[in-house]
């Protein structure tokens, strides 16, 4: 993800912005294009950068306040860059009654971050979800698209370890 701290628009993001332009063009004449375009932006950048908001607003001819309003309404969109791995602890009913809160506590402790925060090494972002539809396997956590089932607080360390190791092996690999 972005290298420069000051400008969120790093070199690699320039390329992504061009890609975004193509996407916007392909959606341009569709009704209700704003949300699909934002979804594409989110998966392209891992968040919705300021530059992208300006571009979307201009090209789709939607006022800035509306674009911003939509972004902040939906939890899927993030205005801040997220870590390489987004950990979501399910706090849906099935997971909750099977001890999801204790898993959340263990994760906060292991990562030394709170909900919505990212670790300083930019590896993990901690978030919560409200049911991923895998309730038969409760309690579960999702790390990006991987489902981890029947998680125990004592098993959290091992799960995190696997991702840390993966990162070390694939230093250069980028999404």
């Amino acid at each position: 993800m972005s290298k420069g701290e000051k400008c969120s628009c790093g070199d690699d993001e320039k390329g992504l912005l061009e890609r975004l332009e193509e996407i916007i063009v392909s959606f341009k004449n569709k009704p209700g294009a704003l949300i699909p375009v934002l979804q594409a932006t989110q998966s392209l950048f891992g968040y919705v950068p300021q530059e992208a908001i300006l571009k979307i607003s201009e090209m789709l001819n939607e006022p800035l306040h509306k674009v911003h309003g939509v972004i902040t309404f939906y939890s899927f969109f993030s205005l801040k860059p997220r870590g390489k791995y987004l950990i979501r602890v399910c706090l849906g009913t099935a997971c909750y009654v099977q001890g999801a809160n204790e898993i959340l506590t263990a994760l906060k402790q292991q990562l030394s971050i709170e909900i919505g925060e990212t670790t300083t090494d930019k590896l993990f972002t901690l978030d919560v979800g409200r049911c991923f539809g895998a309730c038969g396997l409760a309690p579960i956590i999702m790390v990006n698209d991987d489902v981890h089932q029947f998680v125990k607080p004592s098993g959290v360390k091992k799960i995190l370890g696997a991702y840390k190791k993966h990162k070390a092996v694939n230093q250069e690999e980028e999404t």
């Binding site: 209700g32 704003l34 309003g69 939509v70 309404f73 939906y74 899927f76 969109f77 409200r130």
Partner: peptide
């Protein structure tokens, strides 16, 4: 297909419609 973006209220019929139209799902 239109994908949701993580808002429970969008399951409510009028909110869902508002969301497909490209707005805050109120």
């Amino acid at each position: 297909i239109r994908k949701g973006s993580g808002a429970f209220v969008c399951g409510e019929e009028t909110a869902l419609i508002t969301s497909i139209e490209g707005n805050r799902g109120e």
